[in-house]
């Protein structure tokens, strides 16, 4: 993959990093379970105020990575720094700067929302004087202002998810790590949560794991794709949209020739059939065979009825990267 190695955040030199530069910096993160390598040599960096989308098929190692970043799991190898503090050497100081919403929100169903958020604030060492404020702010940001007295067990899934997010931001951490925060929510709630995440990106850094691709395009500044425990792609969303743009077209032909004939056209690098009458044609580097294609199609009576640039969505990139071995 041409972008993989060059676009990946470069390892920082060994000198101590300046505080403000990056909120999370993980290097060479590896985790093995017996002989199985769940996460292999993952290096990632999160800058202040950035929302990072963390993508990957199921079982790619996203949750394991997030568990390591939040100190729930010790890495087999590698180093994690939270705002310059080594997570393995000074776990308490580092953890105080992280808020984590795991895939299953860690909620005590028998507590009320207020009691629970109070507890979360206490556990994260929010000073007594600021605790009530912190809880009120977190509730207000997550739209929980009216639900403070309700038992968590009686809330709907969407509200429980909000309580989970409130728990992660109550101590206003530098980094918020959210593992699939919109799973199981209705479309309105998803919109609310996305709005909240974008808002969080202003003051905090956010790592967002998901496999809902439009979500990443909607809220993230940068995206990292993980596959089989390794980072296979990392770039900004803006750059992603450039990825492969203008180098691929979709061609619809009513009376198509064999696909090998299309691939043999001058300037065409590859052609493959999507359906019986729809083809994806990839151009060779620097070539523009559109004219030749149209002329040939007319001359040989292929019945050209559609010709459009293939839009590169995150989905294409994702499928391309995570399916290439199969």
């Amino acid at each position: 993959m041409h972008t993989t190695s060059t676009e990946r955040p470069q390892p920082v030199a060994t000198m101590p990093e300046p505080e403000a530069a990056s909120t999370i910096s993980a290097r060479g993160l590896t985790r093995t379970f017996g002989n199985h390598i769940a996460v292999n040599d993952v290096t990632l960096e999160l800058r202040r105020g950035e929302v990072l989308g963390f993508l990957g098929p199921n079982g790619a190692g996203k949750t394991t990575t997030m568990h390591m970043l939040t100190g729930n799991l010790a890495p087999s190898r590698g180093e994690i720094r939270i705002c310059g503090i080594d997570l393995l050497e000074q776990p308490s100081a580092a953890k105080a700067r992280i808020g984590y919403l795991p895939e299953v929100p860690p909620l005590y169903r028998e507590l009320t929302v207020d009691e629970y958020l109070q507890l979360a604030a206490k556990l994260h060492r929010v000073p007594r004087a600021r605790r009530a404020d912190a809880v009120a702010t977190a509730k207000q940001r997550c739209g929980l202002s009216d639900t403070g007295g309700k038992l968590i067990g009686t809330l709907s899934k969407g509200y429980q998810q909000r309580v989970g997010i409130a728990q992660a931001i109550v101590h206003s951490p530098d980094v918020v790590v959210l593992d699939e925060p919109t799973v199981g929510l209705d479309p309105n709630q998803i919109r609310d949560i996305r709005g909240l995440i974008r808002e969080l990106g202003g003051a905090h850094s956010v790592i967002l794991s998901t496999h809902i691709l439009p979500e990443v395009e909607a809220v993230c500044d940068r995206v990292q794709i993980m596959h089989h425990g390794e980072l296979v792609y990392g770039d900004t969303i803006a750059a992603l949209k450039q990825f492969e743009r203008g180098t691929t077209v979709l061609v619809g032909l009513r009376r198509p020739p064999p696909v090998t004939e299309l691939a043999a056209l001058p300037g065409v690098a590859a052609a493959d059939a999507i359906e019986s009458m729809l083809f994806r044609i990839q151009f060779a580097a620097g070539a523009d065979p559109i004219d030749a294609l149209v002329k040939t199609a007319a001359a040989r009576d292929w019945g050209l009825y559609q010709l459009k640039p293939a839009q590169t969505t995150l989905e294409d990139v994702f499928v391309h990267l995570t399916r290439r071995e199969e």
């Binding site: 729930n72 580092a94 953890k95 979360a120 556990l123 994260h124």
Partner: peptide
């Protein structure tokens, strides 16, 4: 079992 342990493990608590 209820996966609530994560709250304690992610908090700055030994």
């Amino acid at each position: 079992r209820n996966q609530t342990m994560v709250l304690l493990m992610s908090a700055p608590v030994s």
